[in-house]
Design a protein around this nucleic acid. Structure first.
Lengths: 66, 66
DNA sequence: ACAAAAAGTAAATTATACTTTACATTTTGT
DNA sequence: ACAAAATGTAAAGTATAATTTACTTTTTGT
């Protein structure tokens, strides 16, 4: 799963730490998700998408094999 | 997290087993998610929403405290 | 160039998603 | 009513998401 979190953070001028705090997770979780190290829960995905006022599908996208 | 999976399954005439097979998870996982026993991964959520041609946000919704 | 902030990363632990097997209950079709 | 299919549920195990602590590297501002 890829995502545009980094881009949206930039648009909103948020650091990973800021985003983590707003969403209620650790900074490392944001970093790991952002870098595609693991797939977040649907809850997290929805919260982040909502914060950026984007549909989940426009923030997270499946890759070929998924 | 609540969801409308049961309703959408009905609209599409799919059993939990059918859905599980199409998505690639166990029937029990579908049952548990459908009943709100746990929050699925974003991957699963997106796959299910896509199958039903619905935005994730129209299939899964956060409740008050979430 | 320098200091401070932000981002990357890693190991160890905890929480939870998901599977498998197995069985009980409910629903559906005839 | 009966049988078959579908759903509900539970326990034990595996996989992986998320946390914490701690340290290194990169980026940003002055």
């Amino acid at each position: 799963m890829k995502n545009n979190i980094k881009i949206e953070r930039a648009r909103h001028n948020l650091t990973q730490g800021d985003l983590a705090e707003k969403i209620g997770v650790s900074r490392q979780s944001i970093n790991a998700i952002e870098k595609g190290k693991y797939v977040p829960s649907a809850l997290l995905a929805i919260k982040i998408a909502r914060l950026f006022k984007l549909p989940v599908e426009e923030l997270f996208f499946l890759e070929d094999g998924e």
